[in-house]
Every structure is written in structure tokens, then in C-alpha cells.
Design a protein around this nucleic acid. Sequence first.
DNA 1: GACCGGAGTTAGCCGTAGATAACAACCGAC
DNA 2: GTCGGTTGTTATCTACGGCTAACTCCGGTC
Lengths: 227, 227
Amino acid sequence: MKTTTPLTRSREDYLKAIHTLGHERAATVTELARALEVSAPSVTNMLARLSRENLVSLGHRGSAQLTAEGEREALRMVRRHRILETFLVQVLGLDWSEVHEDAEVLEHHVSERVLDAIDRHMQHPTEDPHGHPIPDRRGRLPRRRLDPLTGLPAGACAVVREIRDGDRRRMTRWKQAGLVPGAEVRVADADEHDGMFEIEVAGRRHVLTSQGLDGVFVERVREGRAS
Amino acid sequence: MKTTTPLTRSREDYLKAIHTLGHERAATVTELARALEVSAPSVTNMLARLSRENLVSLGHRGSAQLTAEGEREALRMVRRHRILETFLVQVLGLDWSEVHEDAEVLEHHVSERVLDAIDRHMQHPTEDPHGHPIPDRRGRLPRRRLDPLTGLPAGACAVVREIRDGDRRRMTRWKQAGLVPGAEVRVADADEHDGMFEIEVAGRRHVLTSQGLDGVFVERVREGRAS
DNA sequence: GACCGGAGTTAGCCGTAGATAACAACCGAC
DNA sequence: GTCGGTTGTTATCTACGGCTAACTCCGGTC
């Protein structure tokens, strides 16, 4: 085993992107280029390096899958990112819709020591402000079964569990509507034809398109407590 | 005025080094090479760039002095560094003898927004854990007149004000001896010939060489309160 | 005033990680 | 089965910020 050189920022970004894109499946060059905002040749190039370094294994038509080691590194980054986001919101009082970019930078530069101190300071949180579970030090992540809010039938009740990082404006809108992790929602009306969605959060009604709700994940609840 | 590209990490390091080396005078290539742990040609090279960008002005034999703009940037980095060190110690509970390296990295990567939040969280501290004053947002720094502890005559009393970042082992030793900002010291004996120094801190006596005390700065106090 | 040594510079190289342009390979449609 | 568009690759270039080797330049000493 060679002396492990610390990963560069770029590598860490690629590994994380492959991880989030490739849940169970492999990530293609084009997907990665879009996700990382680089050109396709740059991706091919970097994938070749990561493959040489045994962090990814290349599949059909250049698609990439993480090796065990790559997966470990990716989860390490996910952990760092989520701890930092939680910190920025809980301790520094920043807004959860705007901390993503900062965490994105800091996750690459905070030392293990400082990260641990931050984690300790917050008493080892298990969820970030968007509701995502934080992997433990060994990279283990509780597997949950969540449904996209837009998949629920009219009348269903659920608790919001995760807001998957998307566009900031959308997140702000959701937040204003009360769609934050932990909130109870009732689907008042779901029209499959035109994609209109009427939901009730904390007693208030909101009408949104199902596109506009893409990224909100919930856990269904049996009985409807909201009216 | 051209659209200001943000400085790179390297440039920020050079500016800071020139600032700390060149108190009133210019910094030479060799000094910078040593301080930044790079080769002399690298320094010449970077100084040429910084000069082109109007951040430093070159003097006799390549020596560098900060321009007004360079000075502003350097003080910006000093401010960031000190705020971060204070944060690491006060909020995260890390040890003041070991936070330097972390602050050194983070000062380049923390966004203005996060830095402000940190500053706010600590209620705008004016001194870092080593006693150094923190420049305000406009880069102003209270000018103080401090004396090196080793410059005091036998019998003199003083309050420790600054510990200038040196070697970690030395800092730890000083800390164990009680030589921290705010501590009162009495010089029990100062032998100019052999450089032996006997000091009294918090009632305990310590014998050190004047070399071993280089970096401790104090403010003299008239009457000796310690016995 | 010649010479030596240290300080600085010049020339040319390396690795990282991007980019574009041009080519190849594959897939689906017809 | 051929064609067109999508997808990926190759070749080559760029910028940054390092490096070494080999020079020049300057300040003193003898």
C-alpha cells in the first residue's frame, strides 16, 4: 500500500459527484461534466486518473463507479459537508438556504481536528439542516425509505424529511411555505394531468406545480392529523 | 479600475509574509523564500507578478514593499487569521498553541459572510488568543508600544501582552509557565552576560535563557505588585 | 583592482486541472 | 444496413505556481 497522498480538491469533488449521481448505478461523463461544470474532456481525463488511483472503476462507455476506497472518500466528504452545513446554521445562525456554497468550499479545507471540534461542539448531530442524515465517522449512513412529496395521492399525510439541495430560490420558497424538515404536510389535491398540487402545511394552503416540489422528500404517516 | 479578480492563496500568503517581515522596511527575496518555504526563483517570479498587479513595489535588489492596496489586503488577511484563531480557541475549545496551522489554511477559504458570522458570534473580539490586536474591518490596528520581555532589567514588572507565533513547543512551554497574555511577570534576575533570565509568574519562579523567551512581548508596569 | 561569495535573475522544466478542436464510436431511426 | 446525432476520446493549449541549473551582479577583502 503506497503512502496515501491527500486527495486534491478536484478529486474530492469528482468523487462526491459520482457518489450523489450514481446511487447504485454508474455516472456518465456527460452527467459529471454537467454536475461539476467542466468540459467532457476534463472529465474523461480526471476519470482516467481516478481509475489509475483505484478510486473509481470505469465501465461501459466511460461511465464511472466508485471503488470501495472511492466510496469511503466520498462519504467522508458528505459527512464533512453536512457537519459544516449544520454548524453554519445552528451555531453561526446563517440561513439554511444559503449555506451550501460555503460548506462546499470549507469541506475541502477544514482539518480533521477542527471538524471533530465542530462536531463535538454541536454534540454530534445526526441530521443536517436539510434533513439529510450525517454519515458517522466510519461512513455508515442510516438507510431510510422516503417518498417524493409529488408521489403522494390526494389526502395523504406525511412528514417532510429531506430537502435535496437545489436552487436557492426554490429552497427559500419552500421555507416560506413551511416546507422544512419535520413539518407535517397534507396533500389536499393532486392532479396528475396538469401537475398541480395543493398542499396544506401548518394550516395554510399552498398551490404548487409538481415540478416546483421536486426535491421535497417525505415519510408517510397513517392517520391525517391535520384537518 | 479593472474588475478585481480575487487574490489567489499564494498571493495572499506573499502579501502577509511581506507585511509581517517588513515592518517599516522592505522584505528581501531570501527572507521571503525562507518564510514561505519556497525557492528564491519562485519569489522573484511572484514578486514580479505582484508588482505588475500593483500590490507591491520593488526596491533595491528585488526587495519588496507593500503598496497601499497590498497593505490593505495584507491587513485583511491578518484580520481573518486572528478572528479565526480566536474562534478556534474560544468557541471550539482548541488549544492556543495549536490553532495557527488551521487558521493559516482557513483564512484563505472562509467567505466574507462566514467570517462576519464568526465575528458576530464572538461579539467582535479585539484581541486574538496570543494577545495580538485584531484589525478592524477597515484595516486599522491600535498601535501599541510593547517591549520584549528579554529587554527588561532585573526587578521590572510587566504584563504579558503578545506571544508572537513561533515554534509550537516553545509556546506550550510558555503556556505551562503561565506566560499567557494578561499574566503579570516580574524579572527576578537578568544576567546580560550569559543570557540567563529568572522570572516570576503567578508566584512561581522560572529560569530560562533569553533566547528561550524571544517572542514574548510585555507592557511595563510601574510598581511591582508581586513580591 | 581582481576575486570570491552570496543574492538575485533567467531559462527551461514539471504537475494539476482546466479548455477547444477534431475525431471516433455507438445507438436508434429509417 | 446506413446515416445522423449523441457521447466519449485524443491531441494540443492555457494558466498557475512551483522547481533546478546556470547565469549575473554586487559588495567586500586582500
